[in-house]
Every structure is written in structure tokens, then in C-alpha cells.
Design a protein around this nucleic acid. Structure first.
Length: 256
DNA sequence: ATGGCCGCTATGAGCGGA
């Protein structure tokens, strides 16, 4: 079973690219972030035509998450199920093939010590509280975390301590990993220089000035089934790309 | 020191992203 995550920076702008990637890679599940579209406008038909069920939880202009799945899924939760936290559409949770899949779009946090930064930290605490009851089950938490877990995960050591690499953000992320969850990518690839996001500016992709901020985290009950986890840089090379590229997890699920 | 690019909006400049 292949489970992928991809921040597409507008599903409508990236429609052709996502369709092509689904056709080429044939993932069983694709978690999308920053769909930037209200549910009534979500482009379901093109994905259904490729054999995917569409679960979406979005809003106009900002944020928005979706899960495309070959097999039918049961929605466990749209958002946290908490009006105070669900004004921004950043989480959707489904169950399929005996597996829980939680798709998250963590706030970016703007700059250190801004209101948005504090919101990001609070959101991660809220996510920890949400995930706690589920970590005993086979669970994959995938998405755009907007945090580089350690110094291997960005191009320039000078990024240390800044936004996406600050101690409070890393501690909040570590609290999630202590639930526990494991970073599937790091089960296979210990070396630095593997990135999932490159700024649109300054030719960052061409110069490989990137960050690894999109992650697939797996609970203990599913860890023995992890087979591979890798980043596909190909979509980032296309004309009019998203600034993120997909991360893919292969997990052995009985009867799939 | 600043912004550099991209997508969005009851657009045409400003905001958010990371």
C-alpha cells in the first residue's frame, strides 16, 4: 500500500499535475494540503474518473486538506471536532484497510514570536491532544508540518533557530514523536540533503536550497509494516509547480 | 537591510505562504 502526502498550493492550479502524478505513481492514498477551495468547489470528478474517492475539508483561499483514496474510507473526523480550532481547515482523519490516516496542514507560523507563531505552537499542542487516543492503533499521520526536525533537514546551518527550525517548534514536534510516532523517512535515509519544499524565490530549487518539512509519521502498531519511504522530486521540476513535492510511504497491509 | 515568487481575491494591491 502506498500512502503519499503533497502540499499542492491550490488544487485547482495543480489539477493536471496531480492527475498525472496519480496516474504515474498509483498511490492508494494521497493526502493533500493547501487545497485553497471551499468544499462545494472541490474538483472531485477528475479524481473519481481515475478511480479515487475524494474526502475534502476546505475553505475559500486558504488552508484546506483532502484525502484521495482508491478504497472507500470511513471519515473519523473533519477537523478536531472543536469549533474553536476548526475555523481554519487543517486536519482530516479517515480509516481504511484497518489503518487510521490523519492528514494535517500545520500552520506556518510566519516569524518567531508573532501571533501566528504562537498559534502554530498551540495548534501542535492541540494536535497532540487529538492524536493521543489513536496512537495505540495502526496510524499514519501525514502532511505539511512546516518544521524541519533537525539540522539535516535544511540547506543552510544558519537556518537553525529560525522559523520552522526553532527550539519551541522542535519540542512541540518531539512531543508528537513521543506519543510515540516514528518518522518513516528517517527509518531508511539518515543522511542530510533530502528536501520536500523549496522557496519559489532565488532559484532555490535549482540550487537545492530546500527543507524537509513534509512528513509521514507512523504509530508502533504499524511500524513493522513500513517498507520504504522516499521523496519524489519530479513534480517540483515541472512548469508552474507547487513549492512542495510529494513524500511517499510504502506500508505492507494484509489483503491489499 | 530588503526583497526576491506564487496563488488568491466580488482582484488590479495586498495578504499569506515558509
Amino acid at each position: 500500500m502506498l500512502i503519499a502526502t503533497w502540499n499542492v498550493n491550490s488544487i485547482r492550479s495543480r489539477l493536471d499535475q496531480v492527475q498525472a502524478w496519480l496516474t504515474q505513481q498509483q498511490p492508494d492514498v494521497l493526502c493533500l494540503q493547501e487545497t485553497k477551495v471551499a468544499d462545494a468547489e472541490f474538483p472531485q470528478a477528475p479524481f473519481q474518473a481515475l478511480g479515487y474517492h475524494c474526502i475534502f475539508y476546505g475553505q475559500k483561499s486558504y488552508n484546506g486538506v483532502a484525502i484521495l483514496s482508491r478504497d472507500p474510507v470511513t471519515v473519523v473526523s473533519y477537523g478536531f471536532g472543536d469549533p474553536q480550532w476548526d475555523e481554519q481547515k487543517r486536519l482530516v482523519h479517515v480509516q481504511t484497510q484497518g489503518l487510521h490516516i490523519v492528514n494535517v496542514y500545520v500552520p506556518n507560523g510566519s516569524d518567531l514570536n508573532t501571533d501566528k507563531y504562537h498559534y502554530k505552537l498551540a495548534w501542535l499542542t492541540r494536535l497532540h491532544y487529538y492524536l493521543k487516543p489513536w496512537v495505540g492503533e495502526p496510524l499514519v499521520v501525514g502532511g505539511d508540518f512546516n518544521i524541519a526536525p533537525d539540522d539535516r533537514d535544511y540547506y543552510d546551518p544558519e537556518c537553525a533557530g529560525g522559523i520552522m527550525a526553532s527550539e519551541p517548534e522542535r519540542q512541540a514536534l518531539q512531543k508528537l514523536l513521543d506519543l510515540p510516532l516514528v518518522d518513516a523517512f528517517r527509518q531508511f535515509t539518515p543522511d542530510p540533503g533530502h528536501y520536500s519544499w523549496w522557496d519559489y524565490r532565488q532559484g532555490s530549487f535549482r540550487r537545492n536550497r530546500g527543507w524537509r518539512i513534509d512528513h509521514l509519521y507512523v504509530s508502533p502498531a504499524a511500524q513493522p509494516q513500513i517498507r520504504r519511504c522516499w521523496i519524489d522530486p519530479a513534480p517540483r521540476r515541472l512548469e508552474k509547480p507547487s513549492d512542495h513535492t510529494p513524500v511517499i510511504l510504502e506500508i505492507e497491509i494484509p489483503n491489499s
